[in-house]
Amino acid sequence: MTTFKLIINGKTLKGEITIEAVDAAEAEKIFKQYANDNGIDGEWTYDDATKTFTVTE
């Protein structure tokens, strides 16, 4: 398992979430479901060097 981080730069929600996932594809699926569940819709980026996803509304 690898640790992945999501940085949320939303209009109403900001913060960071860290999860353990098998790979970046699994982490992205989990993070996008979390964002969808919380009404966050924005532009996604991923930095493989730091294993960090960012979503900006």
Rank of each mutant, 00 (worst) to 15 (best):
V55W: 03
T18C: 02
Q33N: 01
D37A: 15
T56I: 07
L6R: 00
T12K: 09
E57N: 14
T2W: 12
T18W: 12
G10S: 08
G39P: 07
D37L: 09
I7Y: 12
L6K: 00
I7G: 03
K29H: 12
T50K: 11
N36P: 03
I17Y: 07
E20C: 03
Y34N: 06
G10E: 02
A49T: 07
I40V: 04
I17F: 10
I19N: 12
N36W: 05
I7V: 06
F4V: 03
A25Q: 11
I19R: 01
F31S: 05
F31G: 15
W44P: 01
A21Y: 02
K29G: 03
A24N: 13
D41M: 05
E43Q: 06
T2H: 15
K32V: 05
Y34E: 05
A49Q: 10
I40A: 08
L6D: 00
I17D: 03
T12R: 03
K32F: 09
Y46G: 00
T52A: 11
V55K: 00
Q33R: 09
E28F: 12
T3N: 10
F31L: 11
E43D: 08
T12S: 11
I7T: 04
E28S: 06
T3L: 04
T2I: 06
W44C: 01
Y46R: 07
I19H: 04
F4P: 00
Q33E: 03
G15K: 15
K29S: 06
K51G: 04
I19D: 06
F53C: 01
F31P: 00
M1N: 09
V22Q: 13
T54S: 08
A24C: 02
G15C: 04
T50M: 09
T50N: 09
M1T: 10
F4K: 00
K14H: 14
N38E: 10
W44E: 00
A27F: 00
K11Q: 03
G10W: 14
K32G: 04
T3W: 10
L13K: 07
L13V: 07
K32T: 09
I30H: 15
K11W: 03
W44I: 15
T52L: 12
G42K: 01
N38C: 01
E16Y: 12
W44Y: 03
E28G: 15
V22M: 08
D41R: 12
N36A: 10
I30W: 13
E26N: 06
T56N: 09
N38M: 09
E20L: 04
E16Q: 13
A35H: 01
A35M: 03
N9E: 07
V22K: 04
G39N: 12
M1G: 15
I30E: 02
G42E: 02
L13D: 14
K51W: 06
T12L: 11
A21V: 08
F4Q: 01
N36T: 12
E28T: 12
K29W: 03
T50C: 02
D37V: 08
T12I: 11
T56F: 06
K51N: 11
T3C: 02
T2L: 11
K11G: 08
T45Q: 12
F4S: 01
I17W: 01
G15R: 15
A35Q: 06
I17H: 09
T50G: 10
A25M: 14
K51Q: 08
D37R: 11
Q33W: 03
L13Y: 12
A27C: 01
T45G: 05
K29I: 06
I7P: 00
T54G: 07
L6W: 05
D48E: 07
